[in-house]
Amino acid sequence: MNKRHLLALAFVVSLALFLIACSKKEETTEQPAETTTAVQPTPIDQSTVGEVTGKVSFDGTKPKPHQIMMDQDPACVKAHGGKPVYAEDDEVNGNGTLPNVFVYVKSGAENYTFAAPSDPVVLDQKGCMYDPHVLGVMVDQTLKVVSSDPTTHNIHPMPKDNREWNMSQPPGAAPIEQKFARPEIMIPVKCNQHPWMRAYVGVVKNPFFSVTGSDGTFSIKGLPPGTYTVEAWTAVGGTPQTQDQTVTIGPKESKTVDFSFKAAS
């Protein structure tokens, strides 16, 4: 090998590398912070805990219920005996309160850590509708999806911060068990084969959440004394909206927090 040639070649190549290095765009990749350490629950003095209860009312004209068309899957039509079915997001209780509102402690409980309960939260598919429509799970708690329908569903949560998955569940198949690793309000869940089907899953770090039922009330128990921001989330009328309230709880105190929503335009 000719040394002079080698030298010249090395020079040329390093020049090229230098040029390339100069023109390289600077890139910074964000590494999402991930905590993998096992959760050690913070001890809470059960003798001092209080609770937050309340009611969510609906203000204004009721949204016109949207009838759901299930024609393409006769199994779904049959499950309802041919009766019309309406979208759950349009539901308002007879007493003017709102069902399906997810109320949870948004902030104030950061100093505590909680272990996820070992019991799964069950989401059923019944008559090509999700039951319940709105539900909460804790981070790393198992969500167990079962089906009571004689037709195939697919369960497709569409999270922003969590891992997306999409799985079919033919009739008779085993329940699907999945966990969410990060808190997220709210993860919409869809069945693509019955596009009207929708559930909302709230993933929270603490056990302080509740969903309003047919009386529009909620109650969050076991709160240690402190100041909290309580948020209510609803998708009434189809568009999600939230409201926050701050509440301070003394030892063994029970406070009432009420919310009132209008249908989002």
């Binding site: 068309m69 024609d71 393409q72 997001d89 596009p195 009207w196 189809g238």
Partner: peptide
């Protein structure tokens, strides 16, 4: 567009004159 409330075509019935009488069906 919102499948959960049956607005598959993304209609704005409140504002678009032409949308008001559109009929959406599954059959």
């Amino acid at each position: 567009v919102d499948d959960a409330i049956g607005n598959f075509f993304g209609l704005d019935r409140a504002h678009d004159q032409a949308s008001k009488d559109d009929i959406v069906t599954a059959t």
